[in-house]
């Protein structure tokens, strides 16, 4: 192991890690938005929109992110839609993540028995109030474990951004292997940086999951 090499290229990995986290976080935020909208459309069974959402979810869940990105980044410009790699990465992550988020929110909503909504309505609450005070708080906490799993999944998926020339951790490692032939050192740094990013999220996830299990008595 050549530690001088590691010290020299540490800043490069830091920049790459920041890019990975930045794009990951922005993409995930959009994925949450897309997911929430889709889950609401499905929950309220809005016609037409609901069918569109169903098609979107199937398309998004049954194709790889890498293929989605190739199509967005290399294919779409042929029709005049020229996007920067960063924007493509975020769109791709939101497109993929949206459906996963939607599914986790939907299953969270489904765990709330209809009787709760009916009771809330009979107490004189409006539809919105029932949603806001009774259903959503419970549904959100029920979907936390799946949600955290999705976040980890999406952060991991950012590794394919390297294919559209984003200098993320993966590309940095590949590039250094190609430039200086220091395979071991480059891979070592790659693993270390992914651990730094993903380990805290994963630990947080299992903590939340354990708390949730205590909260969910009776089941």
């Amino acid at each position: 192991m050549n530690w001088d090499f590691i010290a020299e290229y540490l800043p490069m990995y830091e920049r790459a890690a920041i890019l990975t986290v930045k794009l990951g976080v922005i993409g995930i935020v959009f994925a949450i938005l897309v997911g929430l909208i889709c889950a609401m459309i499905q929950y309220h069974k809005i016609p037409v929109a609901r069918q569109i959402v169903a098609v979107y979810i199937e398309l998004s869940r049954n194709t790889p992110l890498l293929v989605q990105l190739f199509f967005i980044y290399y294919g779409l410009p042929k029709l005049g839609a020229n996007l920067s790699p960063e924007v493509c990465g975020i769109i791709g992550l939101a497109f993929l993540g949206g459906s996963y988020m939607a599914e986790s929110f939907r299953s969270g909503l489904e765990t709330i028995a209809p009787i709760q909504r009916e009771s809330a309505l009979s107490l004189g609450m409006t539809n919105r109030q029932a949603m806001q005070y009774i259903i959503l708080p419970q549904a959100v906490s029920m979907s936390v474990p799946a949600f955290v799993a999705n976040v980890i999944f999406l952060l991991k998926e950012t590794s394919v951004f390297s294919a559209i020339s984003l200098m993320d951790l993966m590309f940095t490692a590949k590039d250094l292997i190609g430039l200086y032939y220091k395979t071991i050192e480059s891979l070592f740094l790659l693993v270390v940086f992914y651990l730094i990013i993903l380990l805290p999220v994963s630990i947080l996830g299992s903590l939340l999951e354990r708390r949730m299990r205590h909260a969910g008595f009776g089941s």
């Binding site: 980044y73 290399y74 410009p77 042929k78 020229n82 390297s162 294919a163 559209i164 020339s165 200098m167 590309f171 590949k174 590039d175």
Partner: peptide
């Protein structure tokens, strides 16, 4: 930076 000729040319054309 791109990792293959195919992707580099595609991006350059775009």
């Amino acid at each position: 930076k791109f990792d293959s000729y195919a992707t580099a040319k595609e991006a350059f054309e775009n």
